[in-house]
Amino acid sequence: MRPFDYQRAERLEHAAQLAADDDTMALAGGTNLIDLMKLQVETPQTLVDIGRLSLGEIADEGDGLRIGALASNTATAAHARVRSDYPVLARAILAGATQQLRNKATTGGNLCQRTRCYYFTNIDQPCNKREPGTGCGAIDGIAKLHAVLGTSPHCIATYPGDMAVALAALDATVEIAGDSHERSVPVREFHRLPGDTPERDNVLEAGEIITSVTLPAPVGGTQIYRKVRERSSYAFALCSVAAVIDMADNRFTRADLAFGGLAHKPWHDPRIADLLVGSEPSPALFDKAADLLLEDARGYGENDFKIPLARRTLTAVLCEATGVEA
């Protein structure tokens, strides 16, 4: 690990001021950042420890719920209201990592976690995300974990997390603060596509810190998080689907879906809900939904399997939610 200055932030404004420097990074749970510092993928000159700020509360916000940026993944998944009102979020968190990691990992840190692309985490390899202009080793390389939607000629990395996929289905909002401003960003717009600036994972600017995530009033319905991975615990998603689905008179009244493991961000395509809502569930309809999802999908050899896998995972979730036989 490269040497760095360690600073403890006493107040949020202090943290934001320090974090405004390009060579400074904020440390929360550290389960991803410290690992990347050991690998010298991240080499901050200053680490500002925000772990003792009062940002860990989970509290009612109107009919919704505000989850503090420093609430641990464990605390969120075990929270009574998350379990009863937003079960897809609890399921997504519990499907990721291990208990030891979830005990330390935070809401804000989870949103900011970086890709597990093998070229990104190996400093001997080219990577436009880690070192812009060096090329992408994954295109034409080892790309099993990689994206099939929204890729660019510069980067085919995936956002690796589960929690944010559920937050995207739930249409949650990320609350952000800077030294002298606050703003809210829908979680569906928080992560970016790589385009020609893959070094930027999300819309956070220098000096901005996530303070909380707010969930809208609960909508009920059937909530499912289905994660396909290479072993049954402690593995990243090859493909995942977070679904909040409601029916009336055998027609969809709600079909909020988000997808993990397929893109540089939790994938949400509003055309899928437009197609499903008002229609009677059927295998033919589910096929049309998958056609929409995967219209522009492109495989890179090793990850070609993700295209049919995404279709089957989406179909399985819709069948489970509606009782239709595939």
Binding site: Q100, L101, K104
Partner: peptide, 25 residues
């Protein structure tokens, strides 16, 4: 790297991977 769990300890009663935590914190 937080993958094997051999370094698991309890901090304030909660289990964590001690390899992924800085002592100064």
């Amino acid at each position: 790297h937080g993958q094997c769990g051999a370094c698991t300890v309890l901090v304030n009663g909660v289990r964590i991977n001690s390899c992924l935590s800085l002592a100064v914190t």
